[in-house]
Each structure stands twice: as C-alpha cells, then as structure tokens.
Amino acid sequence: MNIRKLGMYEELPIGLLLEADPSEQLVRDYCTGGHCFIAEWQETVVGVFVLTALDSETVEIKNIALAERERGKGLGKRLVFLALEEAKKLGFSAVEIGTGNSSLAQLALYQKCGFRMKSIDRDFFIRHYEEPIFENGLQCRDMVRLDYRW
C-alpha cells in the first residue's frame, strides 16, 4: 500500500470520505483546510485520511476511511498508524480523533492503536447533522474524543 498526499488539483475521493462522514459540505470544508492523504493499491485508491491542525502541537484525524472490500484485513489499523506517522512528520506531538458513540468497531480500533479516551461532546451529531445517524442499532448522538501522544 502506497500512501501519498493528495495533489492540489486532484479530485477528492469523496465517495470514500462520505463513508466516514455523511455530510459532503463538512467533508469539503475540512479537506480544504487540511492535509488529505490517500492509500493506493495497484493504482486504485483504497483508503484515505485527513489531518487538520487544531493548534501548533495537535492535529486531528478528521476523517479516515477504508474501501469496504479492503476491510477485515488489518488495513484499517495500518492506515491509523500511517496517519500517526504523517502527523509526526508534520511536526505534531499529539493526535486527536473523534468518533460516534455508536461506532463500536472504530472505538476498539483506535484504542488498540494506542489512543486514550479524552472527552465526550454530548449531542454533537444532533447539533451538526440534519438527518439522524444510526449504527449498530444505536443512534449516533455523542462525539467520543480520543488522543495519542508521543
């Protein structure tokens, strides 16, 4: 798997990004101000992550997604570690990530990668998304924030 920063004039892999965040407007907004990286396998985009600076020391993995056909192969964990490597190369000493209270697999994955629980933004998804989001039989209401520090 090859990881590279998306070129300035390259089209966003919007379909993949929308798998992790259903708001196209929010995705386009944070991609404009962030660093979008794509993971390619045999010239096909199979993964993506977006890093956005929160301050001079901390960056957020704002979006991270893997093509459905590539899931369950350990590539999600590899993508998270590649995002951490890129954050370190960019000079950040901490990385944050947020996910929904209903995103049970993602919560487990991030903790397995060394992230620790930081905070909960209650009703985040109610305030920021027009349509309710359901996952794993639960309504996605709260943003669970985790962080990783070197």
Rank of each mutant, 00 (worst) to 15 (best):
E130V: 07
R69P: 10
I14T: 07
L146Y: 04
R145K: 10
G34F: 11
A67P: 10
N63H: 10
V95R: 00
E70P: 07
N136F: 06
G33F: 14
F92Q: 04
L84V: 07
E85A: 11
L104H: 11
V95G: 00
V27C: 02
L54V: 13
A83R: 05
D147L: 08
H35L: 13
D142C: 12
S93Q: 11
S93R: 03
R71W: 10
T99F: 01
V80A: 09
A65R: 03
K73M: 06
E68C: 06
F37V: 05
D55T: 12
T32G: 11
K77Y: 14
R127Q: 05
E130F: 12
L82N: 08
L17M: 07
G98P: 04
F115A: 06
E96Y: 08
R71E: 11
V45L: 10
S56D: 12
G33N: 13
I97P: 02
D29A: 13
D21C: 01
R116T: 15
C140R: 03
L82D: 05
G76F: 03
F37E: 01
S103F: 00
R141N: 09
D142W: 01
E135I: 04
K89P: 01
V59Q: 04
D142A: 11
M1W: 05
Y129I: 03
L12M: 07
E57I: 13
T99N: 05
V27N: 00
A20V: 12
F49D: 01
Q111D: 14
L17P: 00
N101H: 00
A65D: 01
H128T: 04
Y148H: 09
D123L: 12
E70V: 14
A67C: 15
L17E: 01
Y129V: 02
L138Q: 05
L66M: 12
L17I: 11
V46S: 10
V27E: 00
V46N: 04
G7R: 09
L75D: 07
T44Q: 15
I14G: 07
I38N: 03
I120H: 05
K73A: 10
C31Y: 01
L75A: 13
N2I: 12
G100I: 00
A105R: 11
Q139L: 05
N136P: 02
Y30A: 06
M1P: 07
L12F: 09
I97Q: 00
